[in-house]
Simulated assay, not measured.
Amino acid sequence: MHLAYPAVLSVLLFSVGLYGVLARRNAILVLMAVELMLNAVNLNLVAFDVWLRDTLHAGQALTLFTVAVAAAEIGIGLALVLLVYRNRGTSDVDRLRDLTEHPGDDDESAYVEQPATTDTGAGPLPGQVTPAGRTTA
């Protein structure tokens, strides 16, 4: 078997996956592009395993590990995308740059208690700045 055919196919798959990661804005499409890149690596591992005629079949064993990692990555990645979509209403990667809540959302910062005032109606306390900018004695 010629090694050039699966290697060229692997390079093409990896290039399409890399383009998908860099150009896509939807998080699900980015995850699909990462899967394409992992499948290109798997193709290379199996092709080199066959080409080298390895008796231990290390390339195929590594491919099994890569498939397991890819399955875990897709499971966790899709769970995160669904959680972000539920909270933010979008899965657009460009709009998810910050991890803070947007103003107007129901967040805890709107309910922070203000410091208690010391105004008892008896006038300013000693050392307190009055509205005119003067410090009282």
Rank of each mutant, 00 (worst) to 15 (best):
V21T: 05
L22Q: 10
L22K: 07
A23P: 05
R24C: 13
R24Q: 14
A27V: 01
A27M: 01
I28Y: 06
L29M: 12
L29E: 09
L29R: 15
L29G: 03
V30Q: 02
V30S: 04
L31V: 00
L31T: 02
L31A: 03
M32F: 09
M32T: 04
A33I: 02
E35K: 07
E35P: 04
L36I: 06
M37I: 13
N39A: 14
N39W: 10
A40P: 05
A40Q: 00
A40N: 07
V41M: 12
V41A: 09
N42Y: 05
N42E: 10
N44S: 11
N44I: 10
N44A: 11
N44H: 06
N44V: 09
N44L: 13
N44W: 10
L45Y: 01
L45S: 01
V46T: 08
A47L: 08
A47M: 09
A47W: 06
A47K: 04
F48H: 11
D49K: 11
D49H: 10
D49F: 06
W51I: 00
W51Q: 13
L52A: 15
R53T: 01
R53D: 13
D54A: 09
D54K: 04
T55N: 12
T55I: 06
L56V: 14
L56I: 12
L56A: 15
L56P: 07
L56S: 14
H57D: 14
H57I: 11
A58N: 03
A58P: 00
Q60A: 09
A61M: 11
A61K: 09
L62W: 08
L62N: 14
T63R: 06
T63K: 02
L64W: 08
L64T: 10
L64I: 15
F65D: 12
F65W: 12
T66E: 12
T66F: 04
V67Y: 08
A68F: 14
A68I: 15
A70D: 11
A70W: 00
A70H: 03
A70M: 04
A70N: 10
A71L: 15
A72C: 10
A72W: 05
A72G: 15
E73R: 08
I74S: 04
I74E: 01
I74T: 14
I74K: 03
I74A: 09
I74H: 05
G75H: 06
G75V: 11
G75P: 09
I76D: 01
I76R: 03
G77A: 05
L78E: 02
A79P: 03
A79G: 08
L80D: 06
L82F: 14
L83H: 13
L83D: 08
V84H: 02
V84W: 06
V84E: 07
Y85D: 15
Y85I: 04
Y85F: 07
Y85R: 07
R86L: 01
R86Q: 13
N87H: 07
N87Y: 00
R88P: 03
G89V: 07
S91W: 05
S91D: 07
D92T: 00
D92Q: 10
D94R: 11
D94P: 04
D94S: 13
R95H: 09
L96Q: 06
L96S: 06
L96I: 04
D98A: 12
D98S: 14
L99N: 13
L99Q: 12
T100K: 03
E101H: 09
H102I: 12
P103R: 12
P103H: 08
P103A: 07
G104P: 07
D105R: 10
D106I: 07
D106M: 03
D107M: 08
D107G: 15
D107N: 14
